[in-house]
């Protein structure tokens, strides 16, 4: 498999974090009046700090996961998970930022939908995508999830301007294009998402069940970027195969 060299990923990650930390430092210095030494604790700046710090954290989580995967000691744990709960949890985590930006987030998912997935990996993926979406949306975000045969489809939609043409389509970790610098700071995040989706793979343990073999997903999941979604803006879609917990 044509995996991207981890050193390259690390360089990109460091670049991203350096940018975020720079923003943190300059914001903090703005908090104190250079003349009077007075502390100006503005909500706007605090939210911004929170956002940049969150991004450093996200990037570290991503790099760590990618590193462990690269070294061959990340074994995903597929656990039957209530998908609505997963979406709700991630949306709630980013509520302060959404509230501040006046973003409204809705969830459209069957509350009874249960799917086996690695909650840590998928939590990281959703966190990354939602953070990114908050930046580009016009004011609305829609999280949807539904099963499609032996696949689960989760989509994060917004009403913003959408993705640049060059980023559209299915993204696989093997595609060097995922790390295209022109994609800006989303490069590593998108690569991470592709890896997370692909890590959702595995044999199907059902023996002697003829029907199952045909529909068995041979490969792991994948991610795809689209435009003109339900809200008119960009749509991030992650598709995961049905795997067996344990």
């Amino acid at each position: 498999m044509n995996r991207v060299d981890f050193n390259t990923l690390m360089a990109i990650g460091i670049h991203d974090m350096k940018g975020a930390l720079n923003a943190v430092i300059s914001t903090i210095s703005d908090l104190v009046d250079p003349v009077t030494g007075e502390c100006r604790c503005e909500r706007e700046r605090l939210i911004h700090l929170q956002y940049e710090a969150q991004r450093v954290n996200d990037t570290l989580v991503q790099l760590l996961t990618l590193y462990r995967r690269n070294e061959g000691f990340y074994t995903p744990r597929f656990v039957s998970t209530a998908v609505y709960d997963l979406l709700e949890e991630q949306a709630l985590r980013q509520k302060p930022l959404m509230d501040y930006r006046g973003v409204v987030c809705e969830i459209d998912c069957d509350e009874d939908l249960i799917w086996p997935l690695d909650t840590e990996l998928m939590g990281g993926l959703l966190e990354n995508v939602i953070t990114n979406t908050i930046r580009y949306t016009g004011g609305r975000i829609l999280l949807t999830a539904a099963r499609d045969g032996d696949w689960l489809r989760i989509a994060i939609e917004d009403d913003g301007p959408g993705f640049p043409e060059s980023m559209l389509g299915r993204r696989d970790e093997d595609q060097q294009g995922v790390l295209d610098r022109s994609a800006g700071r989303t490069g590593l995040g998108l690569y991470f998402c592709a890896v997370v989706a692909q890590l959702h793979a595995g044999p199907r343990p059902e023996e002697g069940d003829e029907g199952a073999a045909d529909s068995a997903p041979a490969h792991g999941g994948h991610v795809e970027l689209r435009n003109h979604g339900l809200l008119g803006g960009g749509t991030f879609v992650v598709t995961l195969p049905r795997l067996y917990p344990g």
Partner: peptide
């Protein structure tokens, strides 16, 4: 959680996975 979700005799009405926030 995989033990709990991996075998459901009768379904509870919801799950909460520790740790969770008050929100």
């Amino acid at each position: 959680s995989d033990m709990v979700m991996g075998a459901v005799e009768s379904m509870p009405d919801g799950y909460l996975s520790k740790p969770f926030s008050k929100d």
